[in-house]
Amino acid sequence: MKAETQLQNPYEPEPMRLIRRYPLNEDVHFFQVRAVDMEKALSLNYLPGQFMMISINGIGEAPFSISSTPSRPGLLEFGIRKVGNMTNRIFQLKENGIFGVRGPYGNGFPIEKIKGNDLVIIMGGLGAVPLRSLLLYALDNRDQFGKIYLLHGARTPDEMLFRNEFFNMMKRDDLFCHLTVDQDDTGQWPFETGVVTRLFGKLAHIDPKNTYFAVCGPPVMYKFVVAEILKLNVPKHQILMTLERRMKCGVGKCGHCIIGGYIYTCLEGPVFSYWDVLHMKGLI
């Protein structure tokens, strides 16, 4: 919501109800929520790659990527890792519990630019949360995209987020879905093993000028994945990634998310192209 149309206080969170939650792995849980006000729930619009500020009175607020897709309005979904104070309290929430959410914030993925091109989504660890939104959006609007690839890497089969969902996607004939784990102690893993860059063999025939890459994962992953993408001669502005910074407001005021002296990640990010990243100081 931009200044011209802003009516209410952007810092006051909207009451939301926790509809459903379950573990995605040992420390990341899935949270499905809905605005208590049904009209607001249905009118909430957002883009894949945007985030919301979740608020717990007495504790504070923190930013979380939206994992659901705007093509399925009404419910918002998050994947949250328990790391500290705020996330501990979110994990104490039970179904039907009420808490506050405000947003959506950030730029999101440049969907309009991606449309008409092939799309390669590369996710690792918690990066699956925001990229699931983009993937579901593209699949829901399948005719507007070219070929779609999903490369997903996790440390072990147990750690892979949304694994059942992705297993089912393996059966689709409109998606090239490739899953890998670094290490499989169960001996039951039916797919690839090895780091996510091993899956690049599956991309041999992409057309670099007409392909967008969306990458999200732990910091170490970016380095290796981007090197591989560049080998395919993909233009740098077609490589998209999301960045995490500390955020206290989400609306470009508190200053905590500034990178390189003046880029407000909460406004101009969290999605950046590799070209942007190369020209911002102190970025990754």
């Binding site: 919501m1 931009k2 200044a3 802003q6 952007p10 609306v251 005021k253």
Partner: peptide, 9 residues
């Protein structure tokens, strides 16, 4: 600054 993008109420 306080009215750019979002108005700070």
């Amino acid at each position: 600054f306080h009215s750019l993008h979002y108005v700070d109420p």
